[in-house]
């Protein structure tokens, strides 16, 4: 009944205006994200680590910052790549590079610091090397633990709905 009272008192316009402000916040966040994307040449300039294969450098829940510069991949660099047919990106270190000096084509082999063997078991069947196109990010910095929130949110769906519900409630009570 609170909402109805509010509508009576302030008219529909104030509610619409609040909706507009909310949309403004969402779109500006999206714009900032996309602007960073453009400058880093990387579709997702920050990712959350999901596995423990790079421990003790990265643990689950750490946030990595990525760019995707055009320069050839250096050895020892930590890169994020996707294998064809698998959705989950992998964050591992480049252990071997073979670069053709004329065409610039690179053949790369990666390995997780915490894994005893290289990544050939993770690649598609019969694939021995990763190429430049599979790599969509090169790690240049990180912050620990911050990404734990997103891991909790995706692991426990109830929590996600609880947060959404709470936000909706808050936005209703804000209207006065």
């Amino acid at each position: 009944m609170d909402i109805l009272d509010a509508i009576k008192r302030n008219g529909v316009r104030s509610i619409l205006k609040q909706g507009l402000v909310f949309l403004g916040v969402l779109t500006s966040a999206f714009m900032v994200w996309k602007t960073i994307s453009v400058f880093t040449n990387c579709e997702s300039p920050a990712v959350v680590v999901l596995s423990g294969s790079m421990e003790p450098a990265f643990y689950r829940g750490d946030v990595l910052f990525l760019n995707n510069g055009r320069s050839p991949i250096q050895i020892g660099e930590i890169v994020v790549y996707k294998v064809a047919g698998k959705d989950i990106p992998i964050v591992h270190r480049v252990m071997r590079t073979h670069t053709d000096k004329e065409t610039g084509k690179q053949y790369l082999l990666t390995k997780g610091d915490n894994n005893p063997v290289d990544d050939r078991g993770l690649y598609t069947k019969g694939q021995l090397w990763i190429e430049r196109e599979a790599i969509f990010g090169r790690v240049y910095g990180f912050i620990p633990y911050v990404g734990m929130i997103t891991i909790y949110l995706s692991d426990i769906p109830q929590l996600k709905y609880a947060v959404l519900f709470g936000l909706c409630l808050l936005s209703l009570f804000e209207s006065e």
């Binding site: 003790p56 252990m95 590079t97 670069t99 053709d100 000096k101 004329e102 610091d113």
Partner: peptide, 15 residues
């Protein structure tokens, strides 16, 4: 073969 090769042959984590 006009290829630039780099290979990591040994590594260690210093905690």
């Amino acid at each position: 073969k006009n290829v630039d090769n780099k290979v990591i042959i040994w590594d260690r984590i210093i905690k």
